[in-house]
Structures are given as C-alpha cells and as structure tokens.
Design a protein around this nucleic acid. Sequence first.
RNA 1: GUGGGUGUAGCUCAACUGGCAGAGCACCGGACUGUGGCUCCGGACGUUGUGGGUUCGAUUCCCAUCACCCACCCCA
Length: 439
Amino acid sequence: MTIKAVRGTRDLLPPETESWNQVEQAAREVFALYNFHEIRTPILEDTQLFARGVGEATDIVFKEMYTFEDRARAQSEKAQSLTLRPENTAGVVRAYIEHKLWERPGLQKLYYIGPQFRRERPQKGRYRQFYQIGAEVIGPPSAGSESPARDAEVLQMLVSLLQRAGIKDWNLQLNSVGCANCRPAYNEALRQALAGVVDRMCVDCQRRAQTNPLRVFDCKVPEDQPTIETLPRIGEFLDEPCREHFAEVLEILRATGTPYTLNDRLVRGLDYYTRTAFEFTQGSLGAQNAILGGGRYDGLSEAIGGPKAPGIGFAIGEDRFVMALSAGEAVPSSSVPHAYIAPLGAKMNAAAAQLARELRDQNVSVELGDDSFRLKKSFETAEKLGIAKVIIVGENEVASGQFAVKDLKNGEQKSMGREQLPEVLRRPARTSSSSVTEV
RNA sequence: GUGGGUGUAGCUCAACUGGCAGAGCACCGGACUGUGGCUCCGGACGUUGUGGGUUCGAUUCCCAUCACCCACCCCA
C-alpha cells in the first residue's frame, strides 16, 4: 500500500498555492491598515486550555479534539495531556496572559494565520486540518476593549478584506447573545418554553433542548420552524448595557455604510462568546456557507485564569475563502519566470549558471536549462512553462559576450550584451497582432 | 457518529447481458545535430482503490474494508 495523506488532510499544490498566498497577502495588508500585528502561537497546547476556554460541553472539545498523552521524560515528571489546537483564540488569550500583554500600551490587536485541527467527518469546505486567518482585539477595559467602536471596526475591516480579495455575494449576519448577567435569565426562559413544545420537535432538537438549548435555533427541519418562531429570543432579554452596546455597534455600521442583516437566531458554538456575534456567509459554498465567524468574548481571559480582558475577534475559514474566490473568475495568474536560459552544447552549464546568477541577483527570475538538451527541447520547454524569452548560451555567445535573446511571443530575436539583459528581460513581451498571423 | 453517491492511465472518461482494459488530453522520443507553437510517426503509461467470495472466466455480480464527494450533526 502506498502512503497517502490522512483522511481530512490534503496537499495544496501549485498553482492553487498562489491563491492561498494572494489571500494571505491581502489579509496582511488590510490588517496592517488597521494596525494589527501578527502573533504565532504553538499548534500544541495543554488540553486544559480548550476545556476551560472553549467549553467542556461544546462539540469541539467533547468529541472533535486530537488529544493525546505526552509521555513523561523522567520519573519526577508527570505525563501531560496535549491537544492539537482546534481554534486559535484560546491560544492567543493564553499568550496574552502568559506574557502580561496588558502591560503594553493600548489595546492588543493581533492576527494569526495557521492550521487548526478538528476530527469531524470531512465534507465540502470542511477538513480535519483546516486553515484559519483570524484577529483579536483584547486588553483591559481602561484601554477601550469593551467599546462598541471595536466591534464595528473589526466588522468594517472584514468588509474591506472581502472587497479587496474580490469575494462577492457575501452577507453579514449579526446578533447579540448577551452576557453573563442577562443570559442565564434567557436560558431559563428558553428552557421553560421548550419544555412545553419539545416533544413535537425533531430528535436533534430534543437532544439540543437538553444539552444546549440555544442550538435549537440552528435547526433546519421545516416542520420545526413554526415552533421555533414561537420561542423567546435573546434580544428580548438583553440587559441595558448589552442593549446599548449593540445599538451603538449598529449605529456605527450604518454611519460607515457597512451593510448587515440582523439575525436573532444566530448563535455560536463556542461557550466564550458574549454580546456581539456575527457570521459572514457566502453564496457559492454549499452547506458550509459560513466563510468566517466571530464575536465578543468578554469573559474568556478570566475563564482561563487571567485578568479581566474583554475582547472581540473572528476566524476566517481560509479553505472556504479560497474556494469562494475560485468559484468566481478571480483566478490568479501564476507567476512565470522572466526568462529561460538555454545552455547549448557541451560544457555550457557553468557559463549558463554564471549568467543565471547575475540575472537573479538583479531580480530577473530565471529557469535554467541543461546543456544536454537540444535547442529544440529548450524552446519547447520554455514554451510549455509559458516563459516569454529564451536566452541562448552557446560557444558563440560566450566568446563574443553577445547573447541571443528570442521573444517567444512575437518570434523576434536579437543579440545583446549582458548589461542590457536585465532591463530587456523584465519588460513584458509585446504581442502585436501582426506576429500572430505568421506560421 | 448517521444517511446517500462515486472509485478504471497524471487528467477527463469509455468498455453491450460476466468474455483479450481502451480513447482524448497531458508526458517522453523521433522526423528537424544553433531555434518553439502546426503536422506526422513512434514510445511509456494500470495489481480496474484494497481484501475476500461466486464463476471455466469478474472492471462488471455479492460481502467486507478504505478513500473521496454530497448531506445530517457541528463549525471556519
């Protein structure tokens, strides 16, 4: 049996990796405009971080984590339970606490790009090793971390990222899920309301009513919808501070022309979310149509043993983002070298390598051939690689110092000294209509 | 974890009712020894996902298993 990539993981090959780099570059540029800076946290974390941060009862922690016991190195050392991170917010907050980042001036505005791991059944837009691009704004309340201005700014940043990357047909769904103060009352009201009607609902809802009542709002069974419509909404239970916070977020969004859709059934699957919760969906993605999601997590730091450090953040599903991109026409023009160097005849490899190095030092990208190739093969190879210009390095050229440069687009060939090469090669090829008709 | 679908060459797909596993594209070489695209000729290409069963004979029928796809659950 040949060895294959394990289930739910995949190789990203060229030219697709070009799209990934484009997405990441667009993200870095936009983040920089909003003064976010990169953080890189370990892929491996103490299992407790996720149990306490993400929530013991969530599906992610309960049944989807890659967890294993790291063996003790010495008698005196205890074995430790480690987990491949299923998301990155907990890790960022852990680092915030560990390095006392609240001692630094202002808010911490951090972004990350990297792989995450969840053991789910693979599906379109869902992998066991998947990639997230995310950002967090976190800090002490005195630095403004609780301000609705931060929520609105993050949402606005996401809109500019989607626009810059060329994602179309997106929709921003917004809700407020309350806080530690008002959510218990709502949970109780919901539980009571469900108690009366749950036996008429689908089996999944009956289970949700027990384990995580908020999630009945996710139900897609048509027969359940009328029942769900009668259930109380979190919006009716928000306390005054939560209500004001949400209203101000909306006001800023309107003022900045950021379109949104209120969705009072939007709930999020991680325990740490408070107040603002959001999701961007995209039309071309199939059932897994959430291209990114996030929200506020005002109690997360304290849940994992840190100081009060409210924050808001999001994670973009990079796999889905790239998918949404290639569903449109925004296919990347993969980068093709400026020139192909064709060493011609025996013992020309050294001279060709020398020229290649000179050109590369001057930022000319070069694919270097082999002197065992016949010229014909060199031309064919350059043609197949889509390279526009071929430089011939033969005995004549080496002796005279004049190199033959052929433009494959229009068939013209001329001789020139090496000092002229970089400038000529970097110039894009002219494709005159007259040259197309030769042959 | 549950349900449905699909697995044949690098890619896209054929192969009648169970009877020699094929084509196009791509790849390699030649025609053409310092000049590509077009054309022609030739070459290589497979444990038909894997293992078992039925059969004189299985890509085809049956069972199991694995992978992928789609959906549920859940999430990015």
